[in-house]
Simulated assay, not measured.
Amino acid sequence: MKLSAGASLIADGAQVLAGGSLIDHCTIDTSAGKIIAINPLLAEISPQELALRAEPIQYRLDRGTLVAGFIDTQVNGGGGVMFNHAPTLATLRCMMQAHCQFGTTAMLPTVITDDIETMQAAANAVAEAIRTQEPGIVGIHFEGPHLSMAKRGCHPPAHLRPITEGEFQIYLRQDLGVRLITVAPEAVTPAQIRQLVASGAIVSLGHSNAKADEVRAAIDAGATGFTHLYNGMSAMTSREPGMVGTALISDNTYCGIILDGQHVHPISAQVAWRVKGTAHLMLVTDAMSPVGTDQTEFAFFDGKVIRDGMTLRDPYGSLAGSVLDMASAVNYAVNILDLGLAAAVEMASLTPASFIHLPQIGDISIGKQADFVWLDDDLSVLAVWVAGQLCYRAAPLDW
């Protein structure tokens, strides 16, 4: 089912979160995957009256809240597959299908530290997805291999390395959509960061033991993000702010944060929100293959990762990504951090859209892409649309 020309979402019992405000009783009209009108619903419309309308499809939202689609900039896997293990278009489709049911309408498939052949294959798969306009795939995130050995986490040490011409040839490609590259400031030079940024790539800092001066130099060179704040980075102390302190105090940078109850203490998360604000703190999952499945372990390079509840650990005891989904992250921000639905949704939609320079997504407003998540009153996902196409449904939608 698609939102074709003239189709309408009719919120006769649901609220719509648009531009940070809740709207009661309205219709959202879409055409060719874009929002073309948002109008008040002045009176209850009967099924008979709807039948006389020209629109071929109407979706009725009788409860809950309609919000903008969630954007996840760090997705390693889902649906039982890992992008590193099988860097193909089929894997991207499987990952998107797994995460769509939790409200993700756009993602950056993420390649963690690996050999250059895997990186090339991943880039080729994403380039094909961009060429064919695969729903939800908007680019690629290379998390490594230019990271700190001291803060590598689960990244395989055998593949950590400086940037070579081979990696630059991948990073500078112009057929990959959004290009996000996580590096450690001590593993690259400011000149290399400037070269990446000049090409249109977005540079994020992470898995680093850098001191504040090194981090500031990377920001001055054009880095604008921090990968999973607090995790895999030098801590803030009284005499050395480290990466954490520098990330928090840098006004124009964005910080991803993993709200799964395992990676970050609630108080630390609240501190980050109070300092960075909703506009610069964004929700990410760092999701691995078990998301959307009952998988309890999976192969990971020369070992395996074991799931224990909401925790994933490698054989050395390091946290190895997460089993978090975006709907659960929003729920955590609302119910554990008490940030309110509008702030939580903004951190899951508009903030990441701003970070990766995609103004056409991230909010419900005229001219934006028709990416929607219909949430029940308990914040469970009832339905999801990507570019106007219904991709997941857990509740009746038709009159």
Rank of each mutant, 00 (worst) to 15 (best):
M1D: 03
L3G: 12
S4N: 11
G6M: 14
A7E: 07
S8W: 12
A11L: 09
A14T: 08
L22G: 04
D24Q: 15
H25F: 08
T30D: 08
S31H: 14
G33L: 06
K34H: 11
I35A: 09
I36S: 14
L41Y: 05
Q48G: 03
L52S: 14
E55F: 13
E55I: 03
A68T: 04
G80F: 03
N84L: 05
A86D: 07
T88V: 03
A98R: 00
H99F: 00
F102D: 06
G103C: 10
L108E: 00
T113L: 13
D115K: 05
T118M: 14
N124E: 15
G136L: 02
G139K: 04
H141V: 05
P145A: 02
A158I: 02
L160W: 12
I163W: 03
G166M: 09
I170V: 13
L176A: 04
I181D: 06
V183H: 06
V188R: 00
T189F: 12
S199E: 10
S199Y: 01
A212Y: 11
V215Y: 12
R216F: 08
G225N: 04
Y230C: 13
N231D: 12
G232C: 11
G232L: 09
R239H: 14
R239I: 13
G242K: 05
M243W: 05
V244W: 09
A247I: 14
S250M: 06
N252C: 12
I258T: 05
L259K: 14
L283M: 10
V284F: 12
D286N: 00
A287G: 09
P290E: 10
V291Y: 13
G292T: 06
F298A: 06
A299C: 09
F300K: 03
G309K: 01
G321Q: 02
N331E: 12
N335Q: 05
I336Q: 15
I336C: 10
L337T: 06
D338Q: 15
A344T: 08
P359G: 02
P359H: 01
P359Y: 02
S365M: 11
Q369D: 02
Q369S: 11
A370S: 04
V386K: 01
Q389T: 14
L397I: 03
D398A: 10
D398I: 02
